[in-house]
Amino acid sequence: MIKLFDKICKNTIQLKSIIETKRGTEYGKNFIKTFNSGIKILLGYDMQAYTIKWNNSFVDTNLKDISRLLDFFKTKNLIYLRRVDKRLSASI
């Protein structure tokens, strides 16, 4: 098993050396629905295989979890993952 791992790691670029990841926030749908302005936010059900179907959800930028993520999420090249599902769904 160690030989296989060594072979995989030899002459490869580790993903962690070329990407940066951030976990989003964990707010309930009902909490998010109390906002009708702010910045756009994606909810789990907005993520579908190969597409994002935004449902007009917003969140206040003054929330602590949101303010720490603002600069990161202004990046244009992002891959969004829906991790709470029976299968992995992702979209760019």
Rank of each mutant, 00 (worst) to 15 (best):
K74R: 08
I41Y: 00
S91H: 14
I32F: 06
I13D: 06
L43E: 08
F31E: 14
V59T: 05
R23F: 09
R83F: 12
M47C: 08
F31Q: 09
L81M: 13
T75V: 05
F35N: 01
Y27C: 02
F35E: 03
K10Q: 15
N62Q: 10
R23E: 12
N30P: 00
L70S: 05
T61K: 12
S37M: 06
G38D: 04
C9G: 13
D65K: 08
N36H: 11
I13G: 01
T51P: 00
G28V: 06
W54K: 03
L88D: 06
T34L: 11
S89W: 15
K76C: 06
N77H: 09
L70A: 07
M47Y: 08
L42E: 01
L42G: 01
A90M: 15
I92D: 08
N36L: 05
C9M: 12
I13H: 08
D85E: 13
E20A: 09
I52S: 02
K29E: 07
Y50T: 07
K29G: 08
I2G: 07
Q48L: 13
I13M: 09
K53E: 10
D85A: 15
G38R: 08
I52H: 01
D65H: 09
D71M: 07
L70W: 04
M1C: 06
K74P: 00
D85K: 14
T61I: 15
T75S: 12
S37G: 01
N56Y: 09
C9P: 00
L4D: 12
K40R: 11
A90W: 10
T12W: 12
I13Y: 08
N30G: 04
K76M: 04
T21P: 00
K86N: 15
Q14D: 14
L15R: 14
F73Q: 05
F31I: 09
Y27L: 10
L78P: 02
K10G: 08
K16W: 14
Y50K: 14
S91P: 00
T51H: 14
K53Q: 13
T34C: 07
T75W: 01
I39D: 01
I2N: 12
F5K: 11
T61E: 13
Y27E: 04
T51G: 03
D60I: 03
N56M: 07
D60T: 04
I39N: 00
F31H: 13
S17E: 13
K64Y: 10
M47V: 15
L43T: 04
K22Q: 14
I39K: 02
K53Y: 06
K29F: 09
F72R: 06
F58Y: 15
L63K: 11
V59W: 02
L69P: 01
V59Y: 01
A90E: 12
D71C: 10
R23H: 09
K74A: 04
S91K: 07
R82C: 04
K10C: 13
Y45P: 00
N62D: 12
K10E: 15
A90V: 11
E26C: 08
R87K: 12
L43W: 10
K7A: 12
E26V: 10
I32G: 05
K29A: 07
I66F: 02
S57L: 05
E20R: 14
T25I: 15
I2W: 12
D46G: 03
I92C: 11
G38C: 05
D60H: 06
